[in-house]
Design a protein around this nucleic acid. Sequence first.
DNA 1: ATGGATGCAAAGACTTTGCAGGTCG
DNA 2: CGACCTGCAAAGTCTTTGCATCCAT
Lengths: 139, 139
Amino acid sequence: MGFTELANARLETIGFRSTAPRRAVLRAIEAAGAPFTVEDLLASLPDVGRATVFRTIKLLHELDLLCRVPLEDGSVRYQLSEGGHHHHLVCRGCGRFTEFTDLELDARIQEQARAHDFILEGHAVELYGLCRECRGQGA
Amino acid sequence: MGFTELANARLETIGFRSTAPRRAVLRAIEAAGAPFTVEDLLASLPDVGRATVFRTIKLLHELDLLCRVPLEDGSVRYQLSEGGHHHHLVCRGCGRFTEFTDLELDARIQEQARAHDFILEGHAVELYGLCRECRGQGA
DNA sequence: ATGGATGCAAAGACTTTGCAGGTCG
DNA sequence: CGACCTGCAAAGTCTTTGCATCCAT
């Protein structure tokens, strides 16, 4: 079951309607191989209104079906979420992300919170650099 | 030596001019006890033009005198930078940040990069939760 | 049928830019 | 004095909202 069907089913379960524009957005997101900007989506969906694209992205993000990745310059990309908690390696060359999980890293973070008498409710870790493909190409 | 003098000296050294509006922005930043938004600064500096405030913030950020912290909702705060590399504990209650450094955490991050054949050039870690003051107040 | 969803365009929030005039060094 | 800086307002971005219409259930 692809993302489109899965997300669609999930939406219906919660009481949202399955509409043509909504499914079009889901398909476009699934088709996007790399992280995308809202602008990318808008461009690939000329027949869907801006508002609908924004509203759908917001919805999916709230449902954790889409993850939002802040870049260093302050811009934001979205990417299909694999679901669980994870972190990102963001390539400055090609802009792609790789997700990874690291329990030890998370444990260390938890410990820092404890050390500061801080109730940890969430955290974000982003690594920036060059991926294997881009490192050689001077990208 | 306070931030204002330090930053001012630093600016002059690099060839920027010490002007009244610039110093006013520096003073306002130093006076801000907590992280601030650009809007906060603008409000506290009614006699300095918007453009100048934005331009000065940008300048200070580029010089690493100011650090930019992305909140979960996508908004951005600034805070006087203590200089070196560090991470943040961001309180969802009062909005204040605490900076911390953790070599072990950084090492773990470096290792993840290595494991993914990724040239690490930078990273960001943000912890979200409740600080000690806010945890009891249901804030 | 009926309330949620859509699309358009307008309004908003936030930031940058062009330019005439002022100021630091 | 000359280059840099400032302030204003206008122009950009990017995102949200109001509202009449449409459509899934």
